[in-house]
Nucleic acid binder design. Structure first.
Length: 726
DNA sequence: TCTCCTGACACATTTGAACTGA
DNA sequence: ATCAGTTCAAATGTGTCAGGAG
């Protein structure tokens, strides 16, 4: 699958290929991840190798040939996600690792078919809170636990050509979640009872080995979830049983079927949650078009449901839409918090459930996608899924084309035909990688363990210094509501919310993020939609976003060159989504700021106006009404509350495999990045490590980010260095 | 007592080897 | 000898449940 010839340097050992990346933050106290020899080797590297690459000038070729602005990602099974989200998605995590359900099924477009890309999945905490299921809803009950080492799951097909990615549905169903902090299998480690936001990153394969690569990051707000070791909300259990083929045995007709769902004290019965009118309006529209994914898994299950005789569309309604209204209707599982709010806009006092009011922590209100971002492309014009899309895609200047490089690492990717349908702009002949490929030679053995040898410093693979949060859907012209549009955000590395901030800040309202929420100001005409990126590093919040221009055509809120303030994304009328009971505190969500699509993004500082979610006016508690975007006043981008001064960003320290260093793209400027371009942002260098999953045939599998005792004292993850796989 | 986590359990699906036949 | 199709068992995924730890 993955041809080592392309990336000889990745070949660590006979059996395993180092395909893991570490992204680590600078920490006051450096905790060595690797044997001293390796550490020393890394330190011995020339400064230029350790420092983030300077922003690559935008090559005319890249600019002309690669439609940066058109890279789109759609969540194919967004309808399913939205259904879960409307109830409050819960993800089981186990020590052995548990797959996510629903899984992330994506469709990519706009990639250069001839270029290779790596797709990454990482999951970042949305806020700095720990949650508890009380009164039928999730409520923040305290500060989050120390953040665990961030791991990134590399799609098994990576690296593959753009044609490959665009020719099929991309699924991350292999990714597993675990609560085992000592996990050695490369699963994504998460804390139970915390809220997380999956993110997908599209990175040019060349960029992994060569610093300064462009990348796109996508966030689908509806994919937020709370991790649990056992389901708390019976509605979620029911949804999972009905939609997950592996759980067929628990359906009504199954052997293990629960004749009677156990409803926890706070739970409202699933049926009770039904709200025909609302659900139809919100759910029916998008469900009808999106039920394909659900129908597959639910077909059997739905039939079993009461009134299952209905057609596909209807069955979705019957089974799931009901829950939407319920959120508001039933106090138990669905806090009466304002639904329409965008992720960023959480009513200061969401507690809908009277019983919960005593709770210091506000309960999480259902999310109303439409309200959040009108611009989600995937959604119908009416639907305003708060999809964030960031484009930090920077096409580094392609090396002189003499393409000797293999067409694609993947056999499947080689077929142009498949890709041809999906993309239309870039000629196949373009292959920036060609020259670069040659440069990648197998790394010579070094004193470092093989697994360490492959540690390739990825230049801000996921985050680039100086990147700011950019919120806000840019375009909302997505025709189909089936796939939700993704928020494209800059290469912002989710910074762990500083404990101090979170702790110091009482939870005024459930929605109110402990960390100042970054909300993008949306166009006034459009319904106000302030997207508050989850956890945005405070230090990054006040950076301006230069050269941001909205890309109208981009369905997924792709904001290339979008000037935030100048052109706020148009908000589509809130609609299509049922309000989710799941709290989406956008403000705390660590969405990377939008980054200009140009390579300058790295260095460029964005002028971003951030508005704390709290600032948003509360929306009507009725989920139905919430859908209307007009109710939300436009948020001023500039109205960013003062954030705690973030620690200055320092150039990332990147460990680069010595053997690979010589082969790095020589075209890169040797000098350190322009200081101006790299403000004092913390960087999260990614490093290749040995593949923890030998069973997987694909070398690039997991990226690991590790933060060494970052300043926030979230707890440094020490185990990484001792793990056998490393 | 309550909350949360863990492991065993039964069932369903997926995967891949083994087998058969053309 | 090769290939395609089928069968079957093992592996894997799933939610439930009881029990234990704090």
């Amino acid at each position: 699958m993955l041809s080592m010839e392309m990336f000889p340097g990745l070949t660590l050992g006979p059996q395993r290929i180092g395909d893991c990346f570490y992204r680590e933050r600078e920490a006051p106290v450096h905790i060595p991840l690797f044997p001293p020899a390796c550490e020393a080797a890394a330190k011995a590297l020339p400064p230029r190798l350790l420092a983030p690459p300077p922003p690559a000038p935008v090559s005319s070729e890249a600019a002309t040939t690669t439609p940066k602005d058109e890279v789109k990602m759609e969540l194919e099974n967004s309808s399913l996600w939205k259904q879960f989200s409307s109830v409050g998605t819960e993800m089981i995590i186990t020590k052995k690792g548990r797959r996510m359900f629903p899984g992330l099924k994506l469709k990519l477009s706009g990639l250069n078919p001839s270029l290779r890309y790596i797709l990454l999945l990482d999951i970042v905490p949305v806020d700095n809170s720990r949650y508890r299921f009380q009164g039928g809803g999730w409520q923040a009950v305290g500060a989050a636990e120390a953040r665990l080492p961030d791991r990134v799951f590399i799609h098994p097909d990576s690296p593959a050509t753009g044609a490959h990615w665009q020719s099929r549905t991309i699924s991350f169903h292999y990714a597993k979640l675990t609560n085992n902090t000592l996990d050695t299998k490369g699963h994504i480690i998460l804390h139970s009872l915390h809220r997380y936001q999956p993110r997908i990153h599209v990175i040019e394969a060349r960029d992994v080995l060569r610093w300064g690569g462009g990348q796109h990051s996508f966030v689908f707000p509806e994919t937020q979830f709370i991790t649990v070791t056992a389901y708390q909300n019976s509605k979620i259990t029911e949804l999972k049983i009905n939609s997950n083929p592996f759980a067929k045995g628990f359906r009504e007709d199954g052997m293990n079927s629960k004749k009677n769902f156990r409803y926890r004290p706070g739970d409202t019965s699933y049926q009770d949650t039904l709200v025909p009118e609302q659900s139809l309006d919100l759910g029916q529209e998008f469900m009808a078009s999106q039920m394909s994914d659900i129908s597959i898994t639910l077909a059997s299950g739905i039939q079993e449901l009461p009134g299952s005789e209905r057609a596909n569309n209807t069955m979705a309604e019957a089974t799931y839409t009901s829950s939407f209204p319920a959120a508001q209707a039933s106090s138990s599982s669905f806090p009466s918090a304002p639904l329409p709010q965008s992720s960023s806009s959480f009513p200061s006092h969401p507690a809908s459930d009277p019983s919960d009011r005593s709770d210091p922590q506000p309960s999480i209100p259902p999310i109303n996608y439409p309200s959040l971002l009108s611009s989600s492309p995937a959604l119908s014009s009416t639907s305003n899924t708060p999809s964030l899309q960031q484009t930090s895609f920077t096409f580094p200047t392609p090396p002189p084309s003499s393409s000797t490089s293999p067409q694609s690492l993947l056999s499947s990717s080689s077929s142009p035909s498949s890709s041809s349908n999906n993309y239309h702009t870039v000629p196949d002949t373009i292959s920036p990688h060609t020259s670069t490929d040659a440069s990648f030679h197998a790394p010579s053995s070094t004193t470092c363990p093989s697994d360490l040898q492959d540690q390739v410093a990825v230049h801000s693979l996921l985050t680039q210094p100086g990147q700011q949060l950019q919120a806000g859907p840019l375009a909302t012209d997505s025709p189909s509501d089936q796939s939700s549009a993704a928020f494209m955000y800059q290469n912002i590395v989710p910074t762990n919310p500083s404990p101090t901030l979170s702790t110091a800040q009482p939870f005024p309202c459930q929605n109110q993020p402990t960390v100042p929420a970054l909300s993008c100001s949306l166009p006034m005409h459009a319904s106000s939609t302030s997207f508050a990126p989850p956890s945005v590093p405070p230090q990054m919040q006040n950076l301006p976003f230069p050269h941001v221009s909205p890309s109208p055509a981009h369905p997924a809120l792709h904001l290339p060159n979008l000037t935030h303030q100048a052109q706020p994304p148009s908000l589509a009328p809130a609609t299509a989504f049922p309000p989710s009971s799941f709290p989406y505190p956008p403000s705390t969500l660590p969405h990377p700021p939008f980054q200009p699509s140009s390579c300058l993004a790295v260095a460029s500082s964005f002028q971003q106006s951030v508005t704390p979610a709290a600032t948003l006016p509360p929306v009507a508690h009725n989920p139905c009404t919430s859908s209307s975007t007009p109710s939300y006043p436009a948020v001023e981008i500039g109205a960013v509350p003062p954030f705690n001064p973030a620690p200055p960003y320092r150039p990332e320290m990147v460990r680069h495999h010595p053997s690979l260093l010589p082969q790095l793209d020589p075209s890169l400027p040797p000098s350190a990045p322009n200081p101006a371009l790299y403000p004092t942002f913390k960087s999260y260098p990614l490093r290749l490590c040995q593949d923890p999953h030998p069973s997987l045939s694909i070398p690039f599998r997991h990226l690991y980010r590790q933060q060494h005792g970052h300043s926030l004292s979230q707890g440094s993850y020490l185990e990484m260095s001792t793990r056998p796989m490393f």
